[in-house]
């Protein structure tokens, strides 16, 4: 187990270094920050001076080394727009995104687990057909549209909740549902097919033969066995949400990481974009590591093979 974690961390670091190189080179390709920071009528001398101040006249490997070594120390540079440390900016927004992600993942789980299990047990029933309809619609519906519809219905017409803001728990409902709908649909589908496979297996028959109550057959044995593929998806979803659900955060004016990256892109705030991409990469890797650990926790065969 410890070996698994250490190995994954090792590979994670290597991946992050590669990501940082790509981010570094791509951001160098997008244009000259010096030109962006200077007024339009700046002289050539001022431009050279600025380039020198920013260190952009140094060889590329040296620039990368400076970027990498300061990034390792937690210094991701300063935002051009906010004139503030990128790390500070990011950490201000992260808690909001975390809360939204928590709400969304909760929504995904309370919808997909019961629905996936129930429809697998009642295969080809009316409920199953209904749920399959929900899955198709949920997967097909784009969140920018679904979010606006929810807002129109529940905030404007019914006035149950406010359309924006995050001051009360009620404010979490619409963005969390918007964010979670597609994921809940995807999870339901994967869980259903996984459950159908597992419920058909011999060991489930054996559990019934020994007279185990159906509730335990379903939840203790079938669900745990069927949960590995959905867990992968859930890990990826969580990472995506944490990386900033850009569309949903923008629609609901949610002051999270997603909106930060949106704002950074709109104002060409390169240090922020760079940092967000790097941190998102780290989050994705961490989520995958967590999923791997959970696999091993659920399945002893994985535990022993590492």
């Amino acid at each position: 187990m410890q070996r698994l974690i250490l190995m994954r961390l090792f590979y994670g670091v290597i991946t992050l270094v590669i990501v940082s190189m790509i981010v570094f080179i791509l951001s160098r390709l997008t244009g000259d920050p010096a030109a962006l920071m200077l007024p339009l009528d700046a002289t050539e001398e001022a431009r050279i001076n600025m380039t020198h101040v920013l260190g952009l006249d140094k060889p590329l490997y040296e620039q990368y080394w400076i970027f990498l070594s300061s990034a390792v120390r937690g210094d991701l540079g300063k935002s051009i727009r906010f004139r503030e440390q990128v790390g500070t900016l990011y950490m201000q927004r992260l808690p909001n995104t975390l809360k939204l992600a928590g709400a969304a993942v909760f929504f995904v789980l309370i919808v997909s687990i019961p629905l996936g299990c129930f429809t697998a047990l009642k295969k080809d029933s009316f409920a199953d057909y209904g749920s399959r309809g929900f899955v198709s619609v949920g997967l097909a519906m784009p969140s920018f549209w679904f979010g606006l519809v929810l807002m129109q219905v529940f905030a404007v017409w019914l006035r149950w909740v406010d359309a924006a803001g995050m001051s009360t728990p009620k404010h979490y409902i619409l963005p969390a549902v918007t964010l979670g709908l597609g994921m809940a649909a995807g999870m339901t589908r994967i869980l259903r097919s996984g459950m159908i496979d597992v419920l058909d297996s011999e060991f489930i028959k054996m559990l019934r033969i020994k007279g185990l109550p159906e509730r335990k057959v379903t939840f203790r044995h079938a669900l745990r066995n069927a949960f590995i593929p959905p867990l992968t998806i859930l890990g990826q979803y969580t990472a995506i949400i944490l990386g900033g659900a850009v569309v949903v955060e923008v629609i609901f004016t949610w002051p999270g990481v997603g909106r930060l990256s949106y704002e950074a892109i709109m104002s060409r705030d390169f240090p922020v974009i760079q940092a967000v991409v790097l941190i998102n990469g780290a989050i994705l890797l961490f989520a995958n590591l967590l999923v791997d650990i959970l696999y091993a926790y659920i399945d002893p065969r994985i535990r022993s093979s590492v």
Binding site: F203, K205, H221, N225
Partner: peptide, 8 residues
């Protein structure tokens, strides 16, 4: 296949 693979 008659035993649950993930339980001791």
């Amino acid at each position: 296949t008659a035993l649950d693979p993930i339980f001791s």
